[in-house]
Amino acid sequence: MTTVTTAWDASQYLDGPEMIAAYVDAAFEEGDPAVMASALGNIARARGMSDVAAAAGLGRASLYKSLSEHSHPEFATILKVIKALGLRLTVAA
């Protein structure tokens, strides 16, 4: 008997501000830039990539590329996406 599986898509479960905040907080806590970019990409897909790209002043294809798992986006791009998503980056001691 064959087991059929499908890829897990985090964007399907990011349905509220609290869930999004917890998800991005956990991703940033990892300290891996690729995980951070991927998490922002998942949130952008949950919110609508075209809408997020427009709000960030970026092209949709460029945003997909910047937030893919193996990308190395510039910090300025990350800040634009965070702002477009309605999030705020904070630092705590």
Rank of each mutant, 00 (worst) to 15 (best):
2 T>C: 07
2 T>I: 15
62 S>P: 07
38 S>M: 10
62 S>Y: 09
5 T>G: 10
55 A>R: 03
62 S>H: 11
47 R>G: 02
83 K>E: 12
4 V>K: 08
33 P>W: 08
29 E>A: 15
33 P>C: 06
59 G>E: 01
61 A>R: 04
50 S>D: 03
10 A>D: 06
17 P>W: 07
65 K>R: 12
50 S>C: 02
37 A>W: 01
33 P>Q: 06
88 R>M: 13
91 V>R: 11
33 P>F: 05
14 L>A: 02
18 E>D: 14
51 D>P: 11
41 G>T: 04
39 A>L: 05
74 E>P: 10
11 S>P: 01
58 L>Q: 02
67 L>W: 03
62 S>L: 05
59 G>T: 00
62 S>V: 13
21 A>Q: 10
40 L>Q: 03
22 A>T: 09
26 A>H: 07
87 L>V: 02
5 T>V: 14
69 E>M: 07
63 L>T: 12
13 Y>F: 15
52 V>E: 04
71 S>E: 03
66 S>D: 13
88 R>N: 09
77 T>E: 11
19 M>E: 04
34 A>F: 06
59 G>N: 01
5 T>M: 12
70 H>F: 14
64 Y>F: 11
40 L>D: 01
39 A>N: 03
67 L>S: 02
19 M>L: 05
30 E>V: 15
32 D>M: 06
52 V>P: 00
31 G>C: 12
49 M>I: 10
4 V>H: 11
25 D>P: 04
22 A>I: 08
90 T>Q: 07
2 T>M: 15
80 K>T: 03
51 D>I: 14
23 Y>F: 15
51 D>A: 14
90 T>E: 11
82 I>T: 07
10 A>Q: 05
5 T>W: 06
1 M>H: 13
28 F>S: 05
75 F>W: 09
31 G>Q: 11
21 A>T: 11
13 Y>S: 13
5 T>A: 13
90 T>V: 11
17 P>N: 11
24 V>L: 08
3 T>S: 07
